[in-house]
Structures are given as structure tokens and as C-alpha cells.
Write a protein that binds this DNA or RNA. Structure first.
Lengths: 250, 250
DNA sequence: CCAAAAGTGTTAAAGCTACACCCATGT
DNA sequence: ACATGGGTGTAGCTTTAACACTTTTGG
């Protein structure tokens, strides 16, 4: 997409004007939470994946579309968490300056409201794809995120808060871990999201007592210590529990 | 405001287009939760208060503005809970037909996204005010809400769900009750929001243990049974607790 | 005096926290 | 053999749930 095309898009009647959507796409790898970020062409500036909403699609559909475009994945855990409508939301002049080689400063909306979604994905299954205005799409460790464009640091912060609440209501690991995983891996995921240490014995008891995990006979190999058991989620048991309403975690 | 003025408003550059805001204004009276609804001129059709957002104001400011216009109150507990962007959200043709004597069917957006807020107010302090397109603004018992225009029944339903979660994190009663209230009144408020009966002894112990209430020497008079004590919130203690992070309810 | 709702304490069960040692694996 | 992290049980404490009778007031 070139300048003219983008201009057409912004002014097009095919899209909602002044309303966009941003996705905080979260994965888990090497014991850390990761976010998928995009680097804009000919810059060192990063931002969240996002974009405008088609007149013909629901906002959830727009989020799924963006997710599919950046990750290649369908059928993802996706949740709207907040709509950002401060006035101003960020320093527009700064954005116009930083991206003027890509986007005519004239065509930025003076104001845009954005709907924030977060997605939980299996890190290993994602093939990050930049879009028309960016050259690089890659995972960043949640603790090492640089200064981002727009108000995207703030958006990520609220997404993580929303996730801390959600972890008490959903077996988040189901979406963030590969099919088979070890108990310490699951524990580290919870520790990262909740940002505190958990006791391994208590964690084990609590997770097992939910009755939604199956321990496999396999163990993880190739580690220089005792080989941990592998587990997987028992989807049927999980959905049965959910219906009873009886799912609440840590 | 007449047809032409409304037309100008819809098409005006002073407002965001295709993005509106709706407020679920909740009060508590006679042991029941109430919502403030508006009846449209020359109809029996009811809807939530809401409207478009000025280019110059944040979405929170727009919500406060609408609230102020309908209730006369400033400084209200207000919380964004969800943004509604289904496509379609409701049957537009039906709305056009029902309101054609007020609004030219041509000027409805083919599509609008709305941001949902709920507000918690002291029932007794509100003086309900209709707006330019409505003749009546009044409280409805939450259990007796009629079929509303747009997707407003759905919006109310989600607001109540959000409130059920929020009640665990905030001393909701502070906003919904008058300055002085009795323990049974507070209990009935919790029972109504959570939609289940609570044990009065356990409720009393739990609330008192939070240490944010002061029992007054006064009692409520004029009831044909034992006179209950009055309590009020100890705002200082409440804010101290909140800072410690140690506030979690029922 | 009757009807209505307020006020109050104890006990049992469940859930949570804290805590330490031996085991299996790769180098 | 050593370093690394895995796997596991118990006891005390806190929190929650269940439960019933007496009191006060107005009519």
C-alpha cells in the first residue's frame, strides 16, 4: 500500500472514521510473556498491530481479521478490554513528524478512539507478518518493551491488568501454552502474569483440584535435571466445569 | 432541538460520527435496583440516555456530560464497561419506522458503535430530566424493564454483569446509598446486585471487618419493628484500605 | 398482644499458607 | 560428583457457611 492508497483508505466510506482497533497479542516463551510489535518502515519506531474497522464487519470480526493477518492464526482467544478515548490520547504532532515519510501528515485524523483487545496465542504457532507500513513484526519480552508510538505503552499496561483479573476466571494456560506442557511451565506462566512467586506445592494442588488437566506418561527430556511430567488440558472436563459455573483460580 | 437541528448535529463535524455513548444509570430505592430510562416524544418507546461525543471532549467527559444533563449530578461513580460493535447491532429499519416522526429516516447512520458506561448514583439526589427528543425521564425497576429501543436491553444486561464483578472490588454502597443507611439496607443492595440471598449474621461480620463503616448512635425511626442502627462510610478509612490494596468484598 | 424485621455467637468445614527434603538428569 | 530444578505432604491458620432465638417497635 502506498501513500495514495492509505489516503484512500482513511477517507474511504468502507471504514469507520476516527475509530480504530489495537491488539495486544500475547505469547509465552522461555518463561516470559511476549507481545507482538511492529516496526514502521524506515524507522526504529514500534507499535501494536491495529487498524481501522470495515463498515461491513463487527468489531470482534475486525480484531480477528487483524490477528489473522499478523499471526496467521484463526480461532484465537480474544477479548475486548477497554476503549481509549482520551482527548488528546497522544501527541499527534510527534506522530506526524515521525511517520511523515510514510503518511501525509494531512491525513491523520485529528482525533481517533481505539478499542483495545488482547489475544492469547501459542507462541510457537505464530509466524509474525508485518503489514503494508511496517517492515518487521516480532515478539518482545513484556519487561523490555521500548517507548512505543501513540499511547500503546498505556494500552499494553491495561491489557496486562485485565489479564490479571481474567486469570482468575479462565484457564488461561489453555491458550498460551502448547498442547503438552509441564507443571513448572504452567506455574511460571501464572507467576509472570500475576507478577509474584507462587509456592510449587500449593500451586500443584490447586491446579490439579480443578480436574481439568491430564497427566501424560511422557516426560520432558533433554533437561539437565529430573525430567518433569507432561500434562495437557482435558477440554471436555474444562467445558463441563465452566457450565457448572465452578471455575475460579488462584 | 427540531429535526433540522438534529440533522445538523448528526452531520456536524463537531461530533464523532458513527460512535455514540450510552449510560446505564443505576440507583437503589425501596430495596430494588432502578435504571433511568427515557421515553421518546409521541411514543411509548423507551431507551437509555446516551448520545454522540464531541470532537473536543474525552469519552469519559462525554459520559459525565450526559449524566449531568439527565440527573443534575456531578461527581458520580462512572465506569466504562464494554463497547458494542456488532454488525448489525439492532434492526435499523424498525428504529427508523418507530421514530420517523422525530428523526428523518435518512439521517440515521447505517451503523454506529456505542461505548457503554454505568453510573451509580444516590436515587434521592437525582432529578430526572428528559432531553430534546424525549418527554419523560424516569426510574424503572431493574426487574420490570420493558422492551427497549436499539440493543439497550442487552447493554443493561452486560452492565449488571460488570457490576457483579465490581462489587467485589469496590464498596459500591458508598455510591448507591444515601449518607446514612442501615445494615439491612446495605445487605439488600448486595442481595439485589448479586441476585442471591445472604445470611445477615455473616454479612454483618464481613462488612464490619472491612473497617470502613461507622455506626452512629442514631437509629432509623418510624418503622413498625425494632429500630435499626444507622451507619455511614468512613471515607478516610476506606481510602487508606484502598491504598493498601486490601479491599475485597463478599 | 401481634406482626414484622433487627440484632447477635458458635461450631464445623473448607481453603489457604508456610515450610524442607529427596530425586532424576546432564555435564 | 555436582549442579539444577522436579516432585511431593502435613500442620496451623484463616475464612466461609450454616444455623435460631430474643428484642424492639408500631399498629
Amino acid at each position: 500500500m502506498h501513500k495514495n492508497e492509505l489516503m484512500e483508505q482513511r477517507e474511504s466510506k468502507d471504514y469507520l472514521s476516527q475509530l480504530t482497533l489495537d491488539c495486544v497479542i500475547l505469547g509465552f516463551n522461555e518463561g516470559e510473556l511476549k507481545v507482538l510489535l511492529l516496526r514502521w518502515k524506515e524507522t526504529q519506531e514500534w507499535s501494536l498491530p491495529g487498524g481501522p474497522i470495515l463498515q461491513s464487519e463487527s468489531i470482534d470480526a475486525a480484531a480477528y481479521r487483524i490477528l489473522k493477518e499478523r499471526t496467521g492464526l484463526n480461532d484465537i482467544f480474544l477479548k475486548q478490554f477497554h476503549t481509549f478515548g482520551e482527548q488528546p490520547r497522544y501527541n499527534l504532532a510527534e506522530i506526524q513528524e515521525k511517520l511523515k515519510h510514510l503518511i501525509d501528515p494531512e491525513i491523520w485524523y485529528k482525533r481517533a478512539v481505539t478499542i483495545g483487545y488482547y489475544a492469547l496465542v501459542d507462541y510457537a504457532k505464530v509466524s509474525p507478518q508485518p503489514d503494508e507500513l511496517t517492515v518487521e513484526c516480532k515478539w518482545w519480552d513484556i519487561k523490555e518493551i521500548p517507548q512505543l508510538l501513540f499511547d500503546h505503552n498505556h494500552i499494553i499496561q491495561l491489557a496486562l491488568q485485565a489479564l490479571q483479573i481474567e486469570i482468575n476466571l479462565q484457564p488461561i494456560g489453555y491458550n498460551l501454552l502448547p498442547e503438552k506442557f509441564t507443571m513448572p511451565e504452567l506455574q511460571r506462566l501464572y507467576e509472570t502474569i500475576l507478577d509474584r512467586k507462587l509456592d510449587p506445592r500449593n500451586f500443584y494442588k490447586k491446579i490439579i483440584s480443578l480436574g481439568i488437566l491430564t497427566r501424560l506418561k511422557e516426560r520432558r527430556k533433554g533437561v539437565s535435571h529430573k525430567a518433569p511430567y507432561l500434562y495437557k488440558f482435558d477440554k471436555a472436563a474444562y467445558e463441563a466445569k465452566l457450565k457448572e459455573g465452578g471455575l475460579s483460580f488462584l
